[in-house]
């Protein structure tokens, strides 16, 4: 196996979460996979973590991650490898009663 290289990744942040990212609408992080990129994001901005993840470390069910136009669930999930200059988006699904 060739060793994974760290890609430069841009993550688009939904408007209300920008208060946790110094008002930045996109954050540049490094990571070879989606999971690594998200870890870099929450390490840089720890206040984001409870809104994206449950206490058990799983992504909250309403949090969807897109690589470009594709939901990562239909790729390789959190293990999806990232090309250089990848763009990830945090996309909520909304529900209620």
């Amino acid at each position: 196996m060739e060793s994974q290289k760290t890609s430069s990744v841009k993550i688009r942040i939904p408007t209300p979460l920008r208060s946790y990212t110094n008002d930045q609408s996109t954050v540049a992080v490094g990571g070879a996979t989606v999971e690594e990129a998200l870890q870099s994001l929450t390490q840089a901005y720890p206040a984001l973590e409870p809104h994206l993840y449950h206490e058990n470390g799983e992504l909250r069910s309403f949090v969807n991650i897109y690589l470009g136009d594709d939901d990562i669930r239909y790729l390789n999930g959190p293990d999806t490898e990232l090309p250089d200059d990848a763009e990830l988006s945090i996309v909520p699904s909304i529900a209620g009663g």
Partner: peptide, 14 residues
């Protein structure tokens, strides 16, 4: 808001 609304709530700020 119903209990379901709270369970399913997304992000503060909306």
């Amino acid at each position: 808001p119903s209990p379901t609304d709270l369970e399913e709530a997304t992000f503060p700020g909306y």
